[in-house]
């Protein structure tokens, strides 16, 4: 039953991703006027329903496993998708910029696809990790990742708009993409939010290992180092913006580089390197 529900969620996310992308691709083309609003509505409803279903899985798995479901990395990647959708929906609520979904929903879909394809749920979480520290640590980190992915989306939107303005074509007909200033500003806010969450997540993680568990603290853990690198990329970016006026295009590129760093930290370390963070 749970498996079937998860497959359903996967399909709904697929629909959300496709329809979101489609609505951006159609733009304000006259031929598409009649169906575009329908497409947008389907995309947004799919996003909401998918999110609701995914939210349902957290308590479901919790009950099934008897603790916060973070046993296997396939759990974590579903949780990642959940965080990405949550941040997206909050942004839509605040700004009404649904276009962002065209960039973040495909990411969420791929995350769920991976989770679905590799789901095993056989491993058991080691006893010392079963506590609320895990919940706080992972939630904060994943919300930070989600904020960075939103910033990445705004970065792409910025670059697309800028290209249109420079190319001087169809500049005015497209009202899906916000102005350069808005993309830039919102991307920046997402970056700041991400940095705050990531900082908190790292602090919680280090306190947890230091004082609560008897796991030896290893500074040279690959995941810790790459997380700190990611953190540094974003902090430097904020600093450059504040003191050197690095905004706009440079900030958009920085958001894309940061996204790459998030992927490396999250997926790269998980799959290819050995770390105390690796799920087994």
């Amino acid at each position: 039953m749970i498996n079937f529900l998860f497959l359903l969620t996967l399909l709904i996310y697929l629909a959300a991703g496709i329809f979101q992308t489609l609505s951006l691709a159609l733009g304000n083309r006259t031929e598409a006027m009649a169906i575009r609003s329908t497409i947008e509505r389907i995309a947004f409803w799919a996003t909401n329903i998918g999110f609701a279903l995914l939210t349902l899985f957290i308590p479901l798995w919790w009950l099934q496993q008897g603790h916060f479901p973070m046993t296997h990395w396939t759990d974590s990647i579903a949780f990642f998708a959940w965080a990405v959708t949550l941040i997206y929906l909050i942004i839509v609520r605040l700004t009404h910029l649904r276009t962002l979904g065209s960039f973040v929903m495909p990411v969420a879909f791929i995350a769920i696809l991976i989770s679905y394809s590799f789901a095993t749920h056989t491993a058991a979480l080691p006893e010392p990790l079963r506590n609320y520290w895990l919940l706080a640590h992972t939630t904060l980190i994943f919300l930070a990742y989600a904020a960075f992915i939103a910033a990445f989306g705004f970065g792409l939107m910025y670059l697309m708009t800028e290209r249109k303005i420079r190319k001087k074509k169809d500049t005015l007909l497209d009202n899906l993409l916000p102005s350069l200033g808005i993309s830039d500003e919102l991307g920046y806010r997402c970056t700041i939010l991400g940095v705050i969450l990531l900082t908190m997540g790292v602090i919680v993680g280090s306190l947890w290992t230091q004082y609560i568990t008897d796991v030896p603290w290893r500074w040279l853990d690959v995941k810790v180092i790459s997380t700190l690198m990611t953190w540094l990329i974003y902090v430097v970016q904020i600093g450059l913006r504040q003191f050197w006026g690095w905004h706009g295009r440079k900030a958009a590129y920085a958001a894309i580089i940061g996204f790459g760093a998030v992927l490396c930290t999250y997926a790269g370390v998980e799959l290819f390197l050995d770390s105390m963070h690796t799920y087994r």
């Binding site: 006027m33 500049t171 005015l172 007909l173 102005s179 830039d184």
Partner: peptide, 26 residues
Amino acid sequence: SETTIATGAVSISYAAVELAKKIFNT
């Protein structure tokens, strides 16, 4: 609501205003 006959600037000065709105956040 179903067609775009009323969108898009049709004079040069308005086109300039619309473009400015695409660049600045306000």
